[in-house]
Design a binder for these strands. Structure first.
Lengths: 154, 154
DNA sequence: CGCCTCTTGTTATACTATAACATCCGCGCT
DNA sequence: AGCGCGGATGTTATAGTATAACAAGAGGCG
């Protein structure tokens, strides 16, 4: 299971995600520039999904550019390379909790605190796609609801 | 299986969806007004997902209001009542292919022609949610890729 | 040096969505 | 009839999300 909703040593999340990103970039000839690295660190600060404009505000406060493409390009890079994921149901972005291994991610998304737990599941539509001759390229699986903490608070 | 990618008698799709919507509205004391009915018919003309502004343009051309809330409210009504679904990955809307029975829908979405096939699957994250104490309220399952026709055309 | 690629930055604009308020219509009630 | 009420439709205005197109600097390499 994921640890988004648990007490856990979050420092290890951050460290392992950053070193996985560095290793992957080195291996593929991609550059984890200061902007991209800082963007990933901002997402890694919590398991909360952040909007592109939230990220942009943080970047601007730290001396990076202030216009939307700055954030969208950095987020796009992270998502393309598997270091972050886009949560479609929130139009928001979250750091990948399983860096390194390529995977088709699925998520438990809390509608109250926007915390996201990344899960590992089988491609759920493969047999249907096969039967219809449909070629799946990417699968979005997001369960929206309330995390344990927000349930208790209700 | 769904028939979105097949040759099929589309008239029966339209007729059964409209009569299911009429029956459901009558039973629940909701009104399937001309605007709402026409919006549903527009979605039903094909299995293609339409953006809210596409729908709005059609409605305006037919004498309805021209401002976004007109389309968003009609689409919201149809989605809330299960007569249509929102495709998160496209920010678009499609008529429900299984009107009548309440269901947690899942979709095969063609990125080229935007045609959508609605499928029936089990809630895929239930065990994980159970293990973490997460209360699922709604699940988004969308496979994006290429439908048979668009694969051939490539 | 000159050229190329990649990254970051900008301006401007497009696309998606909702809040707040106005009007109208049908219905039940007196 | 006259009134009040709820719901549907319409408006204006604005918020939130995203991208196209162009400018400029940094580094590698002939």
């Amino acid at each position: 299971m994921s640890h988004a909703f648990d007490r856990h040593d979050h420092g290890t999340c951050i460290a392992s995600a950053l070193s996985a990103a560095e290793a992957a970039c080195a291996g593929r000839g991609m550059q984890l520039t200061p902007l991209r690295r800082r963007t990933l660190e901002i997402l890694l600060e919590s398991h909360v999904a952040l909007g592109a404009y939230d990220v942009l505000a943080r970047l601007e406060a730290e001396g990076f550019g202030s216009k939307p493409p700055v954030a969208y390009r950095a987020l796009g890079f992270l998502v393309e390379n598997g270091f972050a994921h886009r949560i479609e149901g929130l139009s928001a972005y979250v750091a990948c909790a399983r860096p390194g291994s390529p995977h088709d991610p699925s998520f438990l998304v809390c509608r109250s605190c926007r915390r996201v737990a990344e899960e590992e599941i089988q491609a759920p539509l493969a047999p249907e796609a096969e039967a219809e001759g449909f070629a799946i390229e990417r699968t979005v699986v997001e369960a929206q609801g309330l995390c344990p903490a927000c349930r208790g608070r209700a």
